[in-house]
Design a protein around this nucleic acid. Structure first.
Length: 939
RNA sequence: GGGCGUAUAGCUCAGCGGAAGAGCAUCGGCCUUACAAGCCGAGGGUCGCAGGUUCGAACCCUGCUGCGCCCACCA
């Protein structure tokens, strides 16, 4: 009746179901239902290109949470969208423009360039959403937002204006980080610091009017900034220099003189020469010093970080590097260079383009963060928002309590234009929601809007509520805010999480999310961050659909990858990437998403889980082939009542294991332990359901003729199909496609819903937990394994039936074995199964002793397998001797423990009891093994 | 300078106070009509090092070492 192919092919299934789900509109969350809301807003991917495997991770985790909660009956909303990613996207488009047309953005002009960026956004954004769909993301697509769409732009203006009116946004001339390549200011967070080997130069500044030719020697790592010095500082209590404070020094190479000041904050007496040059225009410390002492502030660099007109003519137009060389040479010539020593320093680089960042004096817009941070700190202290893993709380708090004002203006073209207009007459800004007609101060009509745009993270900070309709008071906003979980990477805890907290609390008077789950980053197999240059980037689509080496290379070339990268790709993926399907990729990511450690994605793991999907598929095939005459409705009714007492041991066992697994998965998901949940399902389906239950259901499924056999078959059919059905639902959030495909074909009670997506998530039924069945089954498994073990050692193929005698001194155990003889015979391929009390094993048998080890604790069984004529006495002696040695070691350990009075006195009684039992079992086992050896000697 | 993470089988990782686990890889045996992307077995680990706490430590504490992140106005 079923025509399922033998091998599961995700390509035949995944796209089809995704389209079907979209058509059925099952991803939609309606604000008008009485169900409890569960909201996740997506961390909007940048529209810089396509998604990488890191995105696949968040998409998987968020989809698992969303599908899980949706099945639990929540009104689950996963709100999708993308981020314009100002500087990053602009850079990508600029590079492309240069590569393809050798043009700069200035060549095109602002309007035409923005046109290009929008085109790029269209393409890239579309591609990203496509990728999410391929992964199976159950986003509510009609709600999709983009940070620069009309509604969100309105939210940005509203937020800006309100903060400005509240005095929380201001404009000031300050020292900021300047990227000479991007020609823009950057926030502190956008500067990456790397340790670099530099030098510390000692430079002599002659003291003005000093009769004895006294010189003040400063130490500096940046001699070229000397041209902008406006003071020299010493420690006010430094005996060596105290007399100089208040006098002036001659600034070399410039003809200027500068004051000598005392400053205990800036100067560390122990460091360097004890004197510091002060350049308030190009150093953050010096800037503060300048403010303290009212020093002049000179900028000697222009926007390209080249020397400007404030520098002496000889240096103008030089780059910082050239200027440094020239300054050093000139100082040397003047006899003012006193020496140099190696010195480590940290170099600030632009996060996006890697250019060395220059501290520059500049008029910019800032957010005053202090008042915003306070509530954001309190909310976490009060537990209104909680971090998972919890360690991140500390990081968040540390940053929040030391927060600095946030420079939000960027001299870029791509982004939200700052809603400030400058008056041609009085120069004052008018900040407004809509283009103002006249200057708010003087009424002048000629206004010009600020050219700059806002930091991309400004709009991101509003994301949890701007996407729900803010600043309007919408039903959506009231229903879905605060969101339930913010799931994102720990790398953007400051950039994004902290700022959402501040803005959410400020504008919504409530936290933006109840839980922040921070996942680890995906790195390659060697722990290296994935990068295009390293050629170790994995595109989720390649894992899902597969890619040959040629395809990988072609794609990398298309992205403008350097030669080195192509070589690395050849090395990293010599065979390309085999197609695994979205389910397998998702399961891999979930299984590896342990908290607190970066995820080294190994393709071999993906392959393993592809096999898992196939395994499940074949279990379903088997099930469907064996359901003739099965009635789902009848079974459903029966399981609630009379059928239970007719269930076989295997049936009761697997139902019990299923309940435990369901509980385990539930617990794990509640705690965001995706890996534990995945592992529990994997183990259940493969090790328990497939390896044991299906095997022992086979005889029952084939039975017919007698009413007893019919009943047994009916029970097995019911358990088989209903267990698989529940397992599919349990697995669905992890592997949505294959579970839907299978579930659709399984018999279900009539009236059940049209998609697994909207059925109920399994809830553990404690009445089906059956400890006795689990114990009995463990016994059966032990006996079967013992038989298989000997079979394997003696190279007796599975086709050869064996005669087995099970011996136990325990009458109850014997009864158990007798009761389940059929199961043992089936699984172990045993012809004759005799049960006997303990004693001499039958002639011609080899014996496997059960009991006394971890897996068989508490069992007292000998399994004697008849291998008449095949017994290799020498080999058998080795086997037993090995076993004996190990057991003797166990015994010695137990003895040692029990001989210690402290153990017996202080360990919990149960543990002591356990140890005593172990001791006894070891002794027993040793006796049996010795008897076996003796018996062997008589052969 | 502060903070955080991490070190467990050849590889990628679970386990985090009471007898060392999974997947992949390896070895042996099986085409047992759900699955060879499979089945049945096997081998493989002084759980980074040194101390300490405890009756008992892979697990808790301290120190050290290696690797990796983050923060900091490290002339």
């Amino acid at each position: 009746m079923n025509e399922l192919p033998k091998v599961y092919d995700p390509a035949q299934v995944e796209g089809r179901w995704y389209r079907e789900w979209i058509e059925q509109n099952v991803f939609h969350a309606d604000a008008n239902t009485p169900k409890a809301p569960y909201t996740i807003v997506i961390p909007p991917p940048n529209v810089t290109g396509s998604l990488h495997i890191g995105h696949a991770l968040f998409a998987t985790l968020q989809d698992i949470l969303t599908r899980w909660r949706r099945m639990q009956g929540y009104n689950a909303l996963w709100l999708p969208g993308t981020d314009h990613a100002g500087i990053a996207t602009q850079l990508v488009v600029e590079r492309r423009l240069w590569r393809e047309e050798q043009k700069t953005r200035q060549d095109l002009g602002r309007e035409a360039f923005l046109e290009r960026v929008w085109q790029w956004k269209q393409r890239s954004g579309g591609r990203i959403l496509e990728q999410l769909k391929v992964l199976g993301a159950s986003c509510d697509w009609p709600r999709e937002r983009f940070t620069m769409d009309e509604g969100l732009s309105r939210a940005v203006r509203e937020a800006f204006v309100r903060l400005y009116e509240e005095g929380l946004i201001y404009r000031a001339r300050r020292l900021i980080n300047w990227c000479p390549r991007c020609h823009s200011a950057l926030s502190d967070l956008e500067v990456e610091h790397t340790d670099t080997d530099g030098k510390l130069w000692h430079i002599a500044y002659p003291v003005e009017g000093s009769s004895g030719g006294e010189r003040l020697v400063v130490a500096t790592t940046r001699p070229e900034t000397l041209l902008g010095d406006t003071a020299v500082a010493v420690h006010p209590e430094d005996e060596r220099f105290r007399h100089l404070i208040g006098r002036r020094a001659e600034l070399p190479l410039t003809g200027r003189t500068i004051p000598i000041i005392g400053d205990a904050v800036l100067v560390d007496r122990e460091f360097g020469t004890g004197a510091v040059k002060v350049t308030p225009g190009h150093d953050f410390n010096d800037f503060e010093t300048g403010l303290r002492h009212g020093l002049e502030m000179i900028s000697v660099f222009d926007a390209d970080a080249k020397l400007n007109e404030n520098a002496p003519a000889a240096y103008r137009g030089l780059t910082t590097k050239e200027a440094r060389e020239r300054v050093l040479a000139d100082l040397k010539a003047a006899g003012l260079l006193q020496g140099e020593e190696p010195h480590k320093l940290s170099l600030g680089q632009c996060e996006r383009c890697g250019t060395v960042v220059e501290p520059m004096l500049s008029l910019q817009w800032f957010v005053k963060t202090g008042p915003l941070a306070r509530p954001a700190i309190e909310a976490v202290e009060q537990g209104k928002t909680r971090f998972v893993p919890e360690n991140w709380t500390k990081t968040y708090m540390h940053w929040m309590t030391n927060i600095k004002d946030w420079c939000i203006s960027r001299q870029l073209w791509w982004g939200h234009r700052i809603p400030a207009w400058y008056c041609a007459a009085c120069q004052e800004p008018t900040v407004a929601r809509e283009t103002p007609a006249a200057c708010a101060r003087c009424g002048h009509k000629e206004l010009r809007q600020d050219d700059d745009v806002l930091d991309t993270w400004f709009s991101s900070a509003l994301w949890p509520f701007s996407t729900l309709g803010w600043p309007d008071d919408t039903k959506d906003l009231r229903t879905f805010y605060p969101t339930s979980v913010m799931e994102t990477g720990y790398d953007i805890i400051f950039f994004w999480v902290a700022r959402m907290m501040m803005m959410g609390l400020h504008f919504m008077k409530d936290v933006p999310f109840q839980t922040v789950f921070l996942h680890a980053l995906v790195v390659d197999e060697n722990g290296d961050k994935m990068s295009k240059v390293k050629g170790n980037v994995i595109d989720p689509l390649d894992v899902i659909h597969g890619a040959t080496l040629e395809q990988l290379l072609t794609k990398a070339q298309g992205d403008g990858a350097p030669k080195e990268a192509l070589e690395n790709i050849k090395k990293n993926f010599p065979q390309g990437i085999p197609a695994a399907g979205a389910d397998a990729l998702r399961f891999t990511l979930a299984a590896m998403a342990a908290q607190g450690r970066n995820i080294r994605l190994a393709l071999s793991r993906v392959e393993g889980y592809r096999h898992f999907a196939n395994k499940l598929w074949n279990a379903a095939r088997f099930t469907l082939m064996n359901l003739e005459g099965h009635d789902a409705d009848r079974w459903h009714d029966e399981l609630g009542s009379e059928a239970r007492e007719r269930l076989g041991l295997g049936d009761r066992w697997i139902l019990s294991r299923l309940q435990r697994t369901v509980a385990e998965v539930d617990q794990a998901l509640e705690a965001f332990k995706f890996n534990e949940a995945a592992q529990a399902i994997y183990r259940f389906l493969w090790t328990e359901f497939c390896d044991w239950y299906i095997e022992l259901a086979k005889p029952a499924l084939q039975g017919s003729g007698t009413p007893a056999a019919e009943t047994r078959r009916r029970m097995a059919q019911g358990v088989l199909s209903s267990t698989l059905e529940v397992a599919c639902r349990l697995l669905h959030p992890f592997m949505p496609f294959v579970t839907e495909e299978i579930w659709q074909q399984l018999p279900r009670p009539s009236g059940s819903s049209g998609s697994i997506m909207i059925t109920m998530y399994p809830v553990a039924d404690d009445t089906l937990i059956d400890a006795a069945a689990e114990r009995s089954m463990a016994l059966v498994q032990q006996v079967v394994t013992a038989v298989r073990n000997l079979r394997s050692e003696y190279h007796v193929g599975p086709g050869v039936p064996l005669d087995v005698t099970v011996m136990s001194a325990d009458a109850a155990t014997r009864a158990e074995v007798e009761a389940h003889a059929e199961l043992i015979q089936g699984l172990g391929r045993v012809r004759e199964l005799q049960v006997a009390p303990r004693g001499e094993p039958p002639h011609g048998t080899v014996v496997s002793v059960i009991g006394g080890d971890a897996a068989s604790a508490g069992m007292d069984i000998d399994v004697a397998v008849n291998l008449e004529g095949q017994i290799d006495v020498a080999a058998e002696r080795v086997r037993i001797a090995k076993d004996l040695a190990k057991t003797e070691k166990d015994l010695a350990q137990s003895q040692a423990k029990l001989e210690k009075p402290s153990f017996v006195e202080r360990a919990p009684p149960a543990v002591v009891e356990e140890e005593r039992r172990r001791l006894a079992e070891s002794q027993d086992r040793i006796a049996k093994l010795k008897a076996s050896l003796e018996r062997l000697g008589r052969l």
